[in-house]
């Protein structure tokens, strides 16, 4: 299976090179990126069969989903908006997460605790991963636009933010769905839809950060640097919610953190 992971990572790296080398031709990059997505999807499928459970329990397993979904979203949104601006960041993010998993392989066992054996498990985590992928891409592009503007001294325009905003317009409602699916699942499993568990609170904080972004963008449509900065900040909160919460003093109180093995 690690051979498939290597193939996916190499395909995405090659796609990034192709996008950079042929800025006016999307096809070579798209073909390589699709190849990587297919390799990654087969890897996840095989993992699912081997573990006899959805491979969504540990941090390492969710990283594989992120690695595959980010280039997949890059392909779909790039095709929808007829742009290849997403190609390089999507491929690099996918390759980065694949390489982390390949260099630090996690022990994956077949056990699945009873609370996770729910019809909500797969939609809740997959919707979150889709949302994280879209929001990660939007922040990546936003930060790149900000850096480019600072470097070149050319001010950003409102139209520069169209693509990152389009990704948030899809990522934020998915984030909302993930949050609400989690609440409905918690009611079924634990008796209450919201218990202020640290992971839940960080999920709410992530949602609030992107909610602030959406409002700031409406009010300050012609201050792109401001809302792109808020977008970058939102992704930092998202990363704490996904990985960082395991290292906080409150992590011992949480029953929802991803296991590390």
């Amino acid at each position: 299976m690690s051979a498939l992971g290597v193939c996916a990572a190499l395909a995405w790296l090659a796609a990034a090179v192709a996008y950079a080398a042929f800025p006016r031709r999307r096809l070579p990059g798209d073909i390589l990126m699709t190849l990587g997505v297919l390799c990654g999807a087969i890897l996840i499928g095989l993992l699912w069969i081997e573990l006899a459970r959805p491979p969504l329990r540990t941090l390492g397993e969710t990283r594989w989903w992120y690695a595959v979904l980010t280039p997949a979203i890059g392909l779909v949104v790039g095709w929808r908006f007829r742009t290849q601006a997403l190609g390089i960041p999507a491929c690099l993010l996918g390759a980065l997460f694949a390489l982390i998993n390949l260099l630090h392989p996690e022990y994956m066992d077949k056990t699945l605790m009873p609370a996770l054996q729910s019809p909500w498990f797969v939609p809740h985590v997959v919707v979150y991963m889709l949302s994280y992928s879209a929001l990660g891409l939007s922040s990546g592009i936003g930060l790149w636009l900000l850096a480019r503007s600072v470097w070149s001294g050319a001010p950003l325009t409102a139209s520069d933010t169209r693509l990152p905003h389009a990704l948030v317009a899809v990522g934020f409602p998915l984030l909302t769905c993930g949050l609400l699916f989690g609440a409905l699942w918690a009611k079924q499993a634990w008796g209450h839809y919201w218990a202020w568990d640290p992971k839940e609170t960080w999920a709410l904080l992530t949602w609030c950060a992107y909610l602030i972004y959406l409002h700031v963008r409406i009010r300050h449509a012609f201050r792109p640097a401001l809302h792109l900065s808020v977008l970058g900040f939102g992704f930092v909160v998202l990363l704490v919610c996904w990985f960082g919460v395991n290292y906080l003093p409150t992590s011992a109180e949480s029953v929802h953190t991803y296991t590390r093995q």
Partner: peptide, 21 residues
């Protein structure tokens, strides 16, 4: 008002997300 009240609620929630109950 929306941004400020969301930020205020989020800042207080941040305390609950970092400091043990």
């Amino acid at each position: 008002m929306a941004v400020t009240s969301i930020a205020a609620v989020a800042l207080i929630a941040l305390v609950g997300a970092v400091v043990p109950q």
